[in-house]
Amino acid sequence: MTSGAPFESPRDAPELDVDPLVAVFRHDVHKLRGRSHDAAQEVFRGARVNEAVPLGADGDAARLSRPKGAPDETVANHRSPRRLSLVTGTTAVASDRIPASDDAPLDWLVLSTDPDVLHSRWLTSEAAATFNESVYYPYTSLRFHTLLVAALLDNYRAGHDFADLHLVATPSGPMPNEGWTAAAARESEVVETFRTVLWSPVCALHVTGDPGDRASAPLGSCPARSFADVWSRLSAHPFDAGDRRWRRLDAQLRRVRSWSTALAYIEDYVAVYGDGGAR
């Protein structure tokens, strides 16, 4: 087991040793850069990237959102790393908003050596939300896949097996003064480092082996595309099912099996319908 160096590495010398939880947030950098796994580089601006994540957390998180085995191309007219939104039916953000040549969001998402900081940035990053987990499954979300990998790894390192884990739903707290930013996430009492996978105005969701007495449901015996099942077994409603908008969101979430797709659905839905303009 390694521990993270508490300093920013100089850009010309590759890091030698990386905290596994830092590695989580860098393990799919090749996807953010539109490259295949085979063409992935080991170093990006001095940071070690595309490393394997320990304890099988990456494979288990993939199993939560994608079928196992050889992938099928499911959307023939969209061979692209851009995520498709189930809410709008189109790419999550117009693709010119994040030019492929602009590494600024990438720097933000991978260069820090502090895993807490990286978690807060992935939790709130719009840029990361525009990529899918696999071009074969364009409705999946690379961002939520990465957050799920972090949550699984953190739980595994704390001694929990997959079968011990629960989905926990809590209120997300009042809107921070500066908005739903990375800095606000680090200050928030709601956000649990590594274990919070969604922090949205409508609710916060956590994957944890320590559910306590919060609204929760077990993830089941093994990683599977089980979101609809787990969501509909939560011991209390995460949001006001008396409000027509949120009831409709709840109904849709009972239909989605892929975890990263479902988490992205919540976020997209809140962005489009959360303002209360339509019921």
Binding site: D72, V75, L86, A228, R248, R255, R257, T261, A262, Y265
Partner: peptide, 28 residues
């Protein structure tokens, strides 16, 4: 069962199983 676990994995199953939302004035 709303989760429709019989939908094929080789097609975009979650897209096939969520409703398209349309807007009529302020009603969805």
């Amino acid at each position: 069962d709303a989760a429709r676990r019989w939908l094929l994995d080789s097609r975009p199953r979650d897209a096939h199983n969520t409703h398209d939302v349309t807007r009529h004035g302020d009603r969805l």
